[in-house]
């Protein structure tokens, strides 16, 4: 039974890993429907003040498997909207001024249900 309990505790904890370190970076919406089209505007909010005491941060964006491109250089805390170019799988990374990765978020989509008629 110990093992069953251990698994029951570990599974949600592993699920929670998706948020590990990522509280510093939020994207809204985190998920969108394909019915909305291929591209949407995403609101990006970051707060790295707990680890970045002086200096700023950098935000990079990229499509899955592609090279990151610098999107913003900003203070440790801030928020901004992307343009109408955020797409399924687009990933935002938050990096401190020494290049250390602080958080990663990936924009996800849900399938557009097929309607008849």
């Amino acid at each position: 039974m110990r093992w069953v309990r251990l698994v029951l505790v570990c599974l949600p904890a592993l699920g929670g890993c998706s948020h590990f370190g990522n509280d510093m970076l939020q994207i809204t919406p985190a998920t969108f429907s394909d019915c909305q089209g291929a591209n949407i505007v995403v609101h990006v909010k970051w707060d790295a003040t707990s680890v970045v005491k002086s200096g700023g941060v950098q935000l990079f964006v990229y499509k899955p498997g592609r090279q990151p491109e610098l999107w913003a250089q900003a203070p440790a805390k801030g928020e901004a909207d992307t343009g109408q170019w955020a797409a399924d799988g687009m990933t935002v990374t938050l990096v401190d001024d020494r290049g250390k990765l602080l958080a990663t978020r990936t924009l996800q989509s849900t399938a557009c249900p097929v309607t008849s008629g």
Partner: peptide
């Protein structure tokens, strides 16, 4: 069972890492 579950999650994390997504994107 625990090792299988660990492999399940480790595979997904490696998968995400190989295309540089957040660890549990599409989990």
């Amino acid at each position: 069972v625990a090792l299988c579950v660990a492999l399940w999650f480790a595979t997904w994390v490696m998968d995400r890492a190989s295309i540089k997504l957040a660890w549990f994107a599409y989990a």
